[in-house]
């Protein structure tokens, strides 16, 4: 089991606010790794640091053993490390199929390819993936007119279309109804088992992340609080204190 992402002492501050303080973690290949923590604990900042949205203050980030902390967003994306956004981001004035088609990998794009048309098998793959997330019938609708949950599914499908090696998902189930959540969990698991995509997931929905992840990291106040398999995290007193509120236990004692 090799590590896809290795963070070593990553720190990031915005002015006086230390969002990430010497975080060291590892995302193993072919697994689903979870990242939890209270609001403002630095989860999204860590994601942004990994995919290159801002430079980090200290530490190192390696992707497949290669240092990526000095690369730009596009270069990292082309290496096969992709993220989805907490506030869903799709190309809102294009239809679903177009959203999918432009999400093909851009790893080896030549100038000639810029003007080429999409071969039928790419369109077919786009349609298959739309079906995978249950948007096939709506594929010609303008994506900005879809419901929030459907946009979230579309964004997930777009990420799969890009054939990433590692996918960072920022709260994939937020704003999605319970029935759809089960379907989404199933699809996330299948993305790992069938397509071999390593997942790194931020999630607030505890039953979801406990059922999904093989391994969970918990952040609090920009520091790494705990790390381990779901059962261990669930019973970790520090996590319970940080997440459920320590005063609750203190009061009842």
């Amino acid at each position: 089991m090799t590590a896809m992402i290795e963070c070593e002492g990553v720190s990031k501050a915005f002015g006086g606010v230390i969002a990430n303080n010497e975080i060291t973690l590892e995302v193993p290949e072919g697994r689903i790794t979870g990242l939890i923590g209270p609001n403002g604990s630095g989860k999204t900042t860590l994601f942004n640091s990994i995919v290159g949205y801002h430079p980090i203050d200290a530490g190192s980030i390696k992707f497949q053993g290669r240092e990526i902390s000095d690369l730009r967003v596009q270069q990292i994306a082309r290496l096969g490390l992709l993220r989805t956004f907490q506030q869903t981001r799709i190309y809102s004035k294009m239809n679903c199929v177009e959203n999918m088609l432009i999400s093909v990998p851009h790893r080896t794009q030549t100038y000639r390819a810029m003007f080429s048309k999409y071969p039928p098998d790419v369109t077919e793959r786009a349609e298959d993936l739309l079906e995978f997330v249950g948007l096939y019938e709506k594929r010609f609708l303008i994506s900005g007119n879809l419901s929030f949950g459907q946009q979230k599914l579309l964004e997930f499908a777009m990420a799969l279309m890009n054939e990433p090696k590692v996918l960072l998902l920022d709260e994939p189930t937020a704003g999605i109804n319970p029935t759809l959540i089960n379907g989404l969990i199933d699809r996330l698991k299948r993305a790992t088992s069938e397509l071999g995509i390593t997942l790194f997931v931020i999630e607030h929905n505890m039953p979801v992340i406990m059922g999904l992840a093989d391994n969970i990291y918990c952040l609090a106040n920009g520091r790494l609080l705990a790390h381990g398999p779901p059962e261990k995290i669930q019973n970790d007193q520090r996590v319970i204190n940080a997440y459920l509120g320590a005063h609750y236990y203190l009061d009842s004692d």
């Binding site: 596009q74 190309y91 851009h106 810029m114 890009n162």
Partner: peptide, 24 residues
């Protein structure tokens, strides 16, 4: 009609997302 048109529209709709997806 080809990739150029879609990439151009993607830049119009959300350039940061387009960068995040690796579009040149």
């Amino acid at each position: 009609l080809g990739r150029f048109g879609l990439a151009a529209n993607a830049i119009r709709d959300d350039e940061e997302k387009a960068e995040g997806m690796g579009i040149h």
